[in-house]
């Protein structure tokens, strides 16, 4: 391939990208990425969906599963929330990562360690049942906040990252991160519902959460914060 595909920093794509060749993402992609060659998520890149390639190098932010036939490298500054699966995986110092990691090629069984059954962590039905009712009480609170004009409800939103840090840490080791989201329901639901509210105050709110997402999944505050500057810039 003479030239490789580049998604520049000023470009946003909502939809699927697939085909043969390499891909460099410095912009924003919300949609599955599946290419035969190498995928590089640059420092300003943000991908909000699953990524598949032969090699994947991440310096930016990804919320979604990474799957590579050869290797995955999370470099300094990378912010990744999602499952990682490749025969060879490296995580550099300074990379932030939350999720389940398998060192096996996509589709192959995960190698077992002698005497240890390695099974993918799956959220139990009990956990799901518990998460669902939790999610609901949060909604009316935030919606009530939406009705108030101006910055009044901001403290509730700012509180969200702190709640994340406290809630997520104990849950992370056992449960697949993709499934963790509902378990942190009070804050996670807050993200989803608070998005329009926060965007109104985003310019002055240095601690505000990222505004650009319409999903209700919880993510690392750092992941969103990293992406925020870029998104806000484009908006303005």
């Amino acid at each position: 391939m003479a030239e490789s595909t580049v998604i520049g920093a000023g470009t946003r794509i909502r939809g699927r990208i697939h085909g043969d060749g390499d891909l460099l993402v410095d912009g924003f992609v919300e949609g599955d990425v599946k290419v035969s060659g190498e995928v590089v998520i640059g420092a300003s890149g943000l991908v909000g969906a699953a990524v598949q390639g032969s090699r994947i190098t991440v310096r930016g932010a990804v919320r979604g599963d990474l799957s590579a036939t050869l290797s995955i490298h999370l470099e300094e500054g990378a912010r990744v929330v999602g499952a990682v699966r490749a025969p060879r995986v490296s995580v550099a110092s300074g990379a932030m990562y939350r999720g389940i990691l398998h060192t096996a090629a996509p589709g192959e069984p995960v190698p077992t360690i002698a005497g240890l059954a390695v099974t993918p962590a799956v959220q139990t039905p009990a956990a799901k049942a518990q998460a669902a009712p939790l999610a609901r009480p949060a909604a009316p609170v935030i919606q009530a906040g939406l009705a108030v004009p101006g910055r009044a409800p901001a403290p509730a939103v700012i509180a969200a990252p702190a709640a994340h840090a406290v809630n997520v840490a104990p849950a992370a080791p056992v449960v697949n991160v993709v499934n963790v989201a509902p378990a942190v329901a009070p804050s996670a639901a807050g993200h989803g519902f608070s998005a329009p509210l926060v965007s109104a105050t985003a310019e002055s709110d240095s601690d505000g959460e990222n505004l650009d997402t319409d999903d209700a999944e919880g993510t690392m505050p750092a992941l969103r914060r990293g992406a925020r500057g870029q998104v806000a810039k484009k908006r303005g």
């Binding site: 490789s4 595909t5 470009t11 946003r12 699927r16 990208i17 697939h18 085909g19 060749g21 949609g31």
Partner: peptide, 24 residues
């Protein structure tokens, strides 16, 4: 810096860019 969709790659969806777009 611009955005390049090289030959062999398919994008299904919406592309919004503040910069040059080169579609192959």
């Amino acid at each position: 810096m611009s955005t390049i969709i090289a030959a062999g790659i398919t994008v299904e969806g919406e592309i919004v860019a503040d910069e040059d777009l080169q579609i192959g």
